[in-house]
Design a protein around this nucleic acid. Structure first.
Lengths: 155, 155
DNA sequence: GCCTATTAGTTGCAATCGTAACTATCGATT
DNA sequence: AATCGATAGTTACGATTGCAACTAATAGGC
């Protein structure tokens, strides 16, 4: 049974990684060139910018599936740029609430322009049908992620 | 127009990366623990194993969306384990054809057992519908990748 | 047949990453 | 209220990465 029952082309981790890498690389090249932003920095900026309100570093990590040390370093870098500010939680001083500064929100808006343009390219490339299917499928994974994160059962 | 027209939750690179990272991390932990394989090594092994016939390093990179230095190092590591062998192309001596050894194919088969089990877990987590949609969507991206790789137009 | 551009693959090196250990704080148990 | 375990976030350090530069070989003018 173990002989030929496996199709790499149907194996989700492999396919997803391939697709993710493909779409990420070219976009990363853009914001790296124009803003000297690293991937974790962009992702952190994006998470905070899209949330609107403050988040903790742990929230950012959960939202973007990034390791907490990545988040920690990205936050430091963005803080140094004065694109975000931290504030201590009054009730629980382990937490810090992260929020974009005015400059950070401006940067976020500029970056989202780039992102929208890129998304449009992708739409052309992938087609409306593929996009729709992909979106439905990703929703299913996103539900699974939330679920697993809620009930870590075995970690 | 640039103000609020952007939804991070609809931005493909972000969503794909999140999903890919989520499904990859737990599987990577398994084969890393059992076989001391790194991700690029597993991906290279998988590409070669599933292809059946020989591939060049460039082929492996295209198939798995890995940077060529990653492939190069993974190939060296697998060679040292005697899981693959190289052979020079007679017509074009820049090329090397990569093929799994017997030990490599055995390892591949064992790994695919792990992979199948993991895929089954994912199926449960994501559901048949989500999986179907995801697959359709990924096919669209895969077509786009092939297309772009054929016609690098602007790179 | 040369000269130049291109491609396959490798490697040096600086930058980035993840693991594990750490600090600081909180919550729960007693 | 003292202790123990858990959690938020940081950091040291070894491992991994990717860029750029490199070698070696081919391909395409001319």
């Amino acid at each position: 049974m173990s002989a030929e029952g496996f199709e790499l082309n149907a194996f989700l981790p492999y396919r997803l990684n391939r697709a993710a890498e493909f779409v990420a690389v070219r976009f990363a090249a853009e914001y790296k060139a124009r803003y000297q932003l690293t991937r974790p920095e962009w992702r952190t900026l994006a998470a905070l910018g899209s949330a609107g309100s403050a988040m903790t570093a742990t929230d950012v990590g959960a939202h973007s599936a990034m390791h907490k040390t990545k988040v920690s370093r990205a936050v430091s870098a963005l803080e140094e740029r004065r694109w975000l500010k931290r504030s201590e939680d009054q009730d629980d001083r382990r937490l810090e609430h992260l929020e974009l500064t005015k400059a950070g929100r401006t940067a976020y808006r500029e970056l989202t322009d780039l992102a929208s343009a890129y998304q449009a390219q992708l739409n052309d490339l992938i087609g409306a049908g593929g996009l729709k299917a992909l979106s439905t499928g990703l929703e299913a994974i996103e539900r699974a992620i939330d679920q697993v994160e809620k009930h870590p059962s075995r970690r």
